[in-house]
């Protein structure tokens, strides 16, 4: 019995490695294979010719370049919105049971909303305000900010709960106002979690597909752009673009490693 367990374990490990590595290899391979060769049947496992033209085209084509910039801007702004508002909510939740109840029920209520039920009427509202499909992506940044608040709040909640009440009271006795205490005591003490929250919210926005597809119909960000490239056939550029899109996420996993994993499960949502 122990032997069969061991065999199962080895098989599982092998499966995990193949499932993680082989697709990435194929993606990388496609991004450096000339367009014609990618249609070969049976498919080539190793490229017969190499080219960098797909990467060059990613940066040469105007649409791609502006999509990269727009995605960066949307992710940065929404991460900022979500972390600021999430920190406020998390701090109140950590210090008052009523705030905790309101916060948790709002956050879980938000999670019950299907993207599609929000995105279509939201598009109508954004259009009346004049920021639907805006070239700056500001409408999408606001939406991403809102959907990332739960992630930021849950990440920061643990950090604020860990700060002893005694320290806030000491600061109050020393003469600081509650807002001052929040800014000069709580936020600096939670700075590691704030960095984690910022990164998580950035990635959340960078990866988000549904709202981006519906809100930025023509002034696209990277995920919907990749979708159109994939569905409408440009294998090489699509693969190059996909590889570029993975860079931030891979950096984070490698750099933050274990500390990120807890945060991922705490705030995981699509």
């Amino acid at each position: 019995m122990n032997n069969s367990l061991k065999a199962a374990r080895v098989a599982l490990n092998a499966f995990v490695l193949v499932a993680a590595v082989l697709p990435l290899y194929l993606l990388a391979k496609q991004s450096v294979t000339p367009e014609l060769e990618t249609f070969a049947w049976p498919p080539h496992w190793i490229p017969h010719h190499l080219t960098l033209s797909h990467f060059i085209s990613v940066f040469a084509v105007n649409e791609l370049r502006s999509a990269v910039l727009r995605s960066l801007a949307v992710a940065a702004i929404s991460a900022m919105i979500a972390t600021v508002l999430g920190a406020m909510l998390a701090h109140a939740m950590a210090r008052s049971s009523i705030a905790q109840r309101i916060g948790f029920s709002t956050v879980s209520g938000i999670r019950l909303l299907p993207m599609i039920a929000v995105a279509i009427p939201l598009g109508i509202i954004l259009a009346t305000v004049g920021i639907y499909d805006s070239p700056t992506g500001i409408g999408l940044a606001i939406v991403h900010g809102a959907i990332a608040i739960p992630t930021a709040a849950l990440t920061l909640y643990a950090a604020f709960v860990a700060i002893p009440l005694e320290i806030e009271e000491a600061a109050w006795i020393d003469g600081a106002s509650p807002l001052r205490i929040f800014l000069t005591i709580d936020l600096p003490m939670a700075r590691a979690s704030i960095a984690t929250a910022l990164i998580l919210c950035f990635i959340l926005s960078w990866d988000e597909f549904g709202f981006a597809l519906l809100v930025q119909q023509t002034n696209r960000t990277l995920p919907p752009l990749l979708y159109y490239y994939t569905v409408f056939g440009n294998v090489g550029p699509a693969s190059a673009l996909a590889l570029l899109m993975m860079i931030p996420a891979i950096c984070v996993v490698v750099a933050l490693g274990p500390s990120l994993r807890g945060a991922l499960t705490a705030g995981s949502s699509r």
Partner: peptide
């Protein structure tokens, strides 16, 4: 009046940062 009072807490409540 907070001006005339100071306090030392059980665990000292020093600001770690």
């Amino acid at each position: 009046r907070r001006e005339s009072i100071a306090m030392v807490f059980q665990n000292f409540a020093l600001y770690p940062h």
